[in-house]
Amino acid sequence: MDVQCELCPKGCVIAPGQSGECRIRVNRDGVLRAVTYGHPCSVHVDPVEKKPLFHFLPGTGILSLATVGCNLHCKNCQNWEISQENPENAAAYRLPPEEIPALARRERCPSVAYTYTEPLVYYEYTLEGCIACRREGIRSALVTAGYINREPMERLCRVVDAANIDLKGFTEEFYRDVCGATLQPVLDTLVLAKSMGVLVEVTNLVIPTLNDSEGQIRPLCRWIARNLGRETPLHFSRFHPQYRMRNLPPTPAAALDRAREVALSEGLQFVYIGNILRPDGEDTFCPGCRKPLVERRGFQILQNRIREGRCPDCGAKIYGIWK
């Protein structure tokens, strides 16, 4: 008998023996099974800045986990070798969710990230890992495209501390043509996560000719300022040609600088440029007195002047989880 998966807006109807679009939610004899549960294909300690999360425990390592699978099929996917792979073809480790906090402690990581692929499709593993970590005083973060239905996301937000959510473009056409998805559920997820107290940072990968025009970037920034708040960090990331999008050049530095200017002109307080070194591109400035607070180069922290979550010069509160 067919089953319908209602985890994400795709609502896959899955025939016996088949999987949903994500490849990892399988109909076995009329029962929907999460086949990668407790079996990540990648486990690494990364700098938290690599996620990128710039307002979350800067300068610390974050235990980063992923199983194979994704419900989006972006033509420019950077991690397609694992996100678009079948579990049958990908080696994995055995790491049940209740063992994640012990591993994080052993590796001296104050937090765990569910990242690299799509943590929302290995939902049960992410949820139970977050619950186990919260019980042990370890924080949890998601790096996600945010393509999920409201009810399961609400449950997850209760045990997640931070999330970097991709806002890949700002038109339905972009999401349909490039990602095989739709825009509105992502916007809903962003608003929901922020409203439930999750520290939200947003990433926008700027792709030449597809989403780099001011006509797309300005409304995206305006939407963030109005719906998530001006304090929401925004990362403009440089595109590199790969996977099924090798016909476009890497994003010129000038396009990223321009995007940042637009975001700042829309009132966003923390705007960063990633995947390329730009002057001040990764530094945090105080929204009150404009003095530099955190200086970063690559994934390294050169200086962090934030004290008790505030600017040491003017006392302005800085959005984030700082310790």
């Binding site: 089953v3 319908q4 998966c5 209602e6 009329g30 929907l32 099974r33 990668t36 407790g38 486990v43």
Partner: peptide
Amino acid sequence: LPARWTEAVRGRLYPGPVRDM
């Protein structure tokens, strides 16, 4: 009509190769 699921049953057996960490 197909049965509707939001949370899946946790799989016990990984369908691919399992290696040591």
